[in-house]
Nucleic acid binder design. Structure first.
Lengths: 232, 232
DNA sequence: GGATCGTTTCGGCGGGCACCGAACCGTCAC
DNA sequence: GTGACGGTTCGGTGCCCGCCGAAACGATCC
């Protein structure tokens, strides 16, 4: 197929308001049911089904059937990065906030959230900044984990060196944050770090969405390892 | 505006076969006239005009009027990166090649080309690999220029240190190549390196498109600085 | 078994938009 | 001036596709 045709059909998958809403919701990295997505996007279940078909056959989503539910999630980190990149290009979003409910939800998301499999928002940026200040990340010539950063992840945080040594995916990568307009740590290191912090309950999910916040124990434990400013 | 709506409208700009062809053509980083683009995409000039309107008002393209010509080009490196990222996600393209003309053109592009403002294709990947082997780039913990790499660019190649120290754009960045499926050097360093190689006539454009190839003088001069394999 | 619920298929409707040709407007060459 | 040419505007046409509701399907629960 023509490269232009391929590019167009890929873009077309995201070129619909409803499908875009579905993909943005799935950016939390978790599996949603078809009905949840329909409600979230504000369309009839039948409509959501059609959209899910297109997104799955386009390779953006994968499904897992379980009883009478159909769970879908993003097909992988590459897809998440693609959507996140596109979203970052939609100009500084000066969306007017309507109600208190939305305002607090928005504030929670800006404070901290998961971005597919790693941390974003003020929390993600603050962690990235602190790691850079400590010489664990090098942002002067691009975005890379230093040797000291690698040993820090394995020795101080106890991450599995084997997990960090997959070849398909970059170890560290900058991901542009669409609320902070700053880079934060992504890639394998970002994903494993996020998983560890959630496992340790140093960071916990707030409500049912992507929002997260640092816990009291996380604040003290991370404070021993890094110079972290107050996030709230 | 709703984030989903913004994402959808951005994607919609590329979700059309003709607009995608236009954007891919403009990935060579140069300015094309409206008529050239219409011919390239195989549509009537009037149709191309409408597409250019949408792409410009969507912020992807900028125009420059000159006499009775209207030149358009990509609005900046960020846009080029976005399109390049999307194109890289369209799966390994196993496009059947039709004629000899297309086959040789395709071979020239695979050998070496500009990717907006830096080098790609086998040439770009080979340069990146050679720089990595020489300790000028570090790809183990992400993608970054080493201190040695920075002095190499300024002292050996004579790049302007001030040019390399803009803050808006990362110094070095990996750009995924859609023919090689490998990373090559992008960012400010990649752009300045490409400019210097073209200025020195160590690399020259082939024909009127994006294709480039290394010149005999470039082969000997670059051979003194790096361990470069034969590209042809 | 029957009732319920999540999901899917199908038909039909409506709007958006990509396309073209024809007319028009500027610029350039002579 | 006149003609040629690049670019644009404007109607008009046709198709694609996103939407819904109704009906069917299948899993679960009682």
């Amino acid at each position: 197929m023509n490269p232009a045709t391929e590019l167009a059909s890929l873009a077309a998958l995201l070129a619909d308001q409803t499908r875009a809403a579905i993909c943005l919701a799935l950016l939390d990295g978790r599996a949603w049911t078809a009905g949840e997505l329909a409600a979230h996007a504000g369309v009839a279940p039948s409509t959501a089904t059609e959209h899910l078909h297109r997104l799955i056959s386009g390779g953006l989503l994968v499904e897992r059937r379980q009883g009478r539910h159909r769970y879908v999630q993003l097909a992988g980190p590459a897809v998440a990065q693609l959507i996140e990149d596109l979203a970052a290009h939609t100009g500084p979003t000066r969306t007017p906030v309507r109600g208190l409910r939305e305002a607090t939800a928005g504030a929670a998301l800006r404070r901290g959230r998961t971005c597919y499999d790693h941390l974003a928002g003020r929390l993600g940026v603050a962690l990235t900044d602190a790691m850079t200040a400590a010489g664990l990340l090098d942002q002067t010539g691009g975005f890379a984990l230093t040797p000291a950063g690698l040993t820090w992840l394995t020795d101080e945080l106890g991450l599995d060196p084997a997990e960090l040594r997959q070849s398909r995916r970059p170890l560290a990568r900058g991901c542009l944050d669409w609320t902070e307009r700053r880079q934060h740590l992504a890639g394998i290191a970002g994903a494993e770090l996020c998983r560890r912090l959630l496992d340790n309950r140093w960071v916990a999910r707030v409500g049912s969405g992507r929002a997260v916040r640092i816990t009291p124990s996380g604040k003290s434990e991370l404070g021993r390892l890094l110079e972290l400013p107050d996030i709230d």
